[in-house]
Structure formats: structure tokens, C-alpha cells
Simulated scan of single mutants.
Amino acid sequence: MEVNCEGCAGCCIDWRPLADAPGDREHRGARPALDDTYNLVPLTREDVRAFVDAGYGDALTPRLWTPAPGDDRVTVDGHELAAIGDRPVFFVGLRKPPKPVAPFDGDARWLPSCAFLDPETLQCRIHETDLYPTECGDYPGHNLALDAETECERVEDAFGGERLVGGEPPADAGVLLGPQALGEKVFCYPDPDELTGAVERLRAGELTRAERARFVGVAAASAPGTAAIAPEKRETYEERAAGADSWVGQAAAEWANRREEGEAGGDDAEPGLAGAVEGARGAPPTPGWDDV
């Protein structure tokens, strides 16, 4: 799939504050997401395990949905959740902490950005590595295969230019939808009572490390095509995710503090801070666009 990503990162950031577009498809429709994150990337079970195994359990976060008419549902913290039977369904994605970014040749702004996005180069720090998520590698092929609008096209409509260079879907676009997604990308939380308090914090963007780790453990221990969970594997991955202390989690906390200071009259949004905030904590470098 040929796309022009230089200066964009439209699929990696929440650029809604920069334009009247894009349409907020994730929070409308039959099953709107409970959180407010834009373009949360759904990870496969194997992706989730790989991130935890690499020490990046603190880079992961869950998504829950409100139910559509006719869906199974459970109520937690006063919110109805889409479910299979009495088990809330969810997926796991990559966190989007605030970062100072300047996409589309605009001024730098504090925008929620993928945990692995270098805010200075607007490149992914794990691109072309074994950790690069399946969904990111296939994008925008999935959208094209489903005849759905891509983020590239939304950026073109809002800011001009050409982002989607090739409009034909790749032959190997592995769209995973319907029942085959269960246990692979969509998971079932076994005990909704454990989520008391966490659902409201998810809505507010305030999930704790331990709460995020519970979802990670369930996803990592899920079995394809079923709601079954392997208890020992769940415990192992939950503990490892809860104990993760990578540059991602450390940087996310500092970015949040810097944004608050900026809004209070301190530091302005400056993408060049990436070296001090992320690089100094061990974030892998990006090549820059001259080498791409």
C-alpha cells in the first residue's frame, strides 16, 4: 500500500481539534466507544503478548463499547456495556498520551498521539520491527478492502495534498471481522464486577496501571474463537503488564505534566523536546524522512 506519510501522522494522532473534519466515527453509530480516544489501534492477541514480552505492558489500554439494540449487555458504574452473555467485550490498543506535534505543516499543538510516535519526526519508533502492530502494517488496506474512507483521504479533504498515493486494496488485506475476531482482536472480560470503578475512570481517561493490566492479562490469555481464558497465563501477563516501567509509560507521565504546565503558562508545545522526554529514557530513534 503506497501512502505519503511525511508531515502527516493523521492515523497516529487525534487531529480533531485542528479542523472541522474528521467525522468521529468511533464515538457514533450503533456501538460508540466508551472512551474519547481517536483512532485507537486494535491489537491482536499475539500483538498484546509481544508488547508485554518486550516490556511495554504500560503502553497498552483497553476499549469498551456501549451496546447496539439487540446486543447482550451488562451495567457497570451505571454504564451499559456491550457484552457476549454476561461478559463485557473489549479490545486492547496503544495509549495516546498528549504530545507536542506539528502535523500538516501547521503550528505545534498538544494533541493525543500514539505512544510510539516521535513527535519531532512524526515517524513510528517501532516501524519495521517485530513489534509493529498487524493493524498498522495493513493500514489503510483494510479500509480500502471494505470500501471505507481512509484517514489519508480525511486529511486530504481537510488540508489538501496527496496522502493516499495508491487507491487499490492489497491482495493480502487481512480484514478480521465477525465471529473470527473473538479471542483474536475482541476479547471477553470474565467478571464485570471486577470493573467497578474502572469503567468510569476509563470514560474519564484516568485508568490506573493496574486496571489497564487486568484487561491486558485477559486479552493475552484468550483463546481464538471462544470466550475462554487460561487462568495461569492471565495471571502471568497481568502481573508483567502491571510491573512494566518502560520509556513509554515514563514519557507519557512527563508529557502530561508538561502539557499541564504549558496550559498554566509554562512550556509551550515544542516537538524538539522529544529527545529529552523520550530519547533520554531509551526510546528508539527514527530515521528521518531523508532516509525513507
Rank of each mutant, 00 (worst) to 15 (best):
L144N: 12
F159A: 02
D193I: 00
L177E: 11
V186G: 06
A145V: 10
R109H: 15
G183Y: 03
C188Q: 06
L182W: 00
R203W: 05
D172H: 02
G161K: 02
H142L: 14
Q180G: 02
F159E: 01
T196D: 15
C136E: 05
F187Q: 03
V199Q: 05
Y189A: 02
E206W: 00
R109Y: 10
T208D: 11
R109K: 14
R154L: 12
V175H: 03
P103V: 05
L111F: 12
R212A: 14
L146K: 13
A173C: 02
L117D: 10
P103E: 02
C136H: 08
R154A: 14
R203I: 01
G106P: 10
P98G: 10
P190T: 04
A158K: 01
Y189K: 00
R125H: 11
T208R: 12
G160A: 04
E162R: 08
A181F: 00
F116D: 11
A219E: 08
A158W: 05
G161T: 00
G160D: 06
Y132E: 13
E206G: 02
P170R: 08
E194M: 07
R163C: 11
D172N: 10
P103H: 03
K96S: 13
E184K: 12
K96E: 10
G106F: 09
A198L: 08
E162P: 00
H127R: 14
G174F: 06
N143S: 14
F116L: 14
L195T: 00
P112C: 11
A158N: 00
T121Y: 10
C136N: 13
V165I: 11
S113G: 07
V218I: 14
E151I: 15
G183S: 00
E151S: 09
D130N: 14
E156N: 03
F159Y: 04
L111C: 13
P97N: 13
A219W: 06
P169A: 10
G205I: 03
D191S: 05
F187M: 00
T134V: 14
V165P: 05
D105A: 15
V218C: 07
E156H: 01
G205V: 00
R203C: 08
E153L: 07
P119E: 13
Y132K: 11
